[in-house]
Design a protein around this nucleic acid. Structure first.
Lengths: 187, 187
DNA sequence: ACAATATGAATGAACG
DNA sequence: CGTTCATTCATATTGT
């Protein structure tokens, strides 16, 4: 369709935000698949410089690309669960009963797959002449800090403009919700 | 119907992308109206598992649903706000001041989350001891990137110089660009 | 059938 | 580094 020039990708895009070329993505993906995850500033510079041949690019784009790709790759593996699309035809009452018991927790609390992953990536990394992986094992040291990651979502006093007139006062109020509020109990 | 995307329900649905059923949307909307905006990974999992009762669904669907809903809600609110209050312009300056001071912040929910100001959803969450052990048994396994499909990055060869040469025979993907081993040499 | 809209999905950028 | 925001792409749905 269009040459890269300023930006390309799958479709035309307005400028203002880097739109990587197919070639750029290919190279970046290759590097990632080869094991590169967090390139140093120097490497970022080289990668960016090299990729500039295919189109406009900046160093920070490369930096962000690796950051995002790594994070999403990891997150995707975490979301690989819950593919159960079998519909039980339980009765709602039964379902609710189960819902209140504790056995449900086991049912719904998905267990992580706990894949026995090898460290093959590290091997690959060390094959590269990128002498910056001296702390390749430092990442394992990442302790699990228990930040009480409560839900930081505020409730708003929305004036329910166009939405249904649902008073969301289900705190200590006398809420007589339709069966809907019961559905929240799975949380 | 189909093995894929066979989301039954009141609305017909084709394959290709997740098409939520009416019940699923109902529950999701309820949660949203209750104040839930950015569910955590655990919550997403539970929501997804629960909603799988009504049809095929994945975690990422829930994740995207909330992301989109929140973003669009915010977008709409913003547009509404910017175009609002053009009728009574008696004290335009005053209105603007008010808008800037507190109302806007509350509407945008960007005000600082008071620690005590818990959300309704949180209350609901804590009312049900379904998953009281949820946080205690967090998976400590923090495995790292594992190889997706170990059919690439065969071998390499390098000199310890900037002009490193690679012999990385990757899977024969059709690429009209220079071979990978050549493109990696800039590192 | 096509245009317009609604909405699922993706991703670059940035925050804490 | 994990999470969140903003913008855009892609596709289903709906209206004419």
């Amino acid at each position: 369709m269009e040459s890269k020039g300023g930006s390309s990708g799958g479709s035309g895009s307005k400028c203002g935000r880097w739109n990587p070329t197919a070639e750029q993505v290919e190279v970046l993906s290759s590097l990632f698949r080869s094991g590169l995850r967090t390139p140093t500033t120097d490497q970022i510079q080289r990668i960016s410089n090299h990729l500039s041949f295919y189109g406009k690019i900046e160093s920070k784009n490369v930096f962000y690309w690796f950051q995002n790709h790594k994070a999403r790759d990891r997150h995707n593996k975490r979301r690989k669960l819950s593919s159960a699309s079998f519909h039980h035809h339980h009765h709602l009452t039964k379902d609710l009963n189960i819902l209140r018991s504790q056995s449900l927790a086991e049912m719904y609390q998905v267990s992580e797959p706990a894949e026995n992953n090898n460290n093959r990536v590290i091997e690959t990394l060390q094959l590269f002449p990128l002498n910056s992986f001296g702390e390749s094992e430092s990442e394992k040291l990442r302790v699990h800090e228990n930040d009480e990651n409560g839900d930081h979502h505020q409730c708003m006093d929305h004036h329910d403009d166009d939405d249904t007139v649902f008073s969301c006062t289900l705190m200590g109020e006398q809420m007589e919700y339709p069966p809907l509020d019961l559905r929240l109990s799975f949380l």
